[in-house]
Amino acid sequence: MNIDSIQNGIVIDHISAGKGMLLYKLLKLDETDVSVALIKNVTSKKLEKKDIIKIDADIPVDLNVIGYVDPEATVNIIKDGNLVEKKVIGLPEKLTDVLICKNPRCISQTEQEIHHVFRLTDKENRVYRCIYCETKAE
């Protein structure tokens, strides 16, 4: 399967197979009108199978979301057809407006215009908790 190289934008590579669609949705790429390719189950030397997302435009992307979905994923920044930066995001310390607290008693359920913020409280087990009520993210 061939997907053209991009000129200016981001390639999110080495996404664990099956997590590409979740990342696509959490990055709200379904709401953009730029060219985006989501490629599933690509053969990979490192992972056997992986997903890849190519965004053919210089749009802002919340890198923390990528780190949350797959801390091992690599982000390649492409400018004028060249790779100018390659990085692994890792687990972010904080997630803003990515997850919604499920605790019905949490202030974030009723307060107007509040940011939904989760903090990494247990790196080993990848546990995030709501900063308001400390409920664990599901």
Partner: peptide, 29 residues
């Protein structure tokens, strides 16, 4: 009125706030 707006308003009148609220995290906000 939101808890956030109440906090901003009361800050104009008082020197310190003690808040009790049924929602978890309201004091943080």
């Amino acid at each position: 009125e939101s808890v956030a707006d109440t906090a901003k308003t009361v800050s104009c009148y008082a020197d310190i706030i003690a808040i009790r609220h049924p929602k978890e995290g309201a004091a943080y906000v």
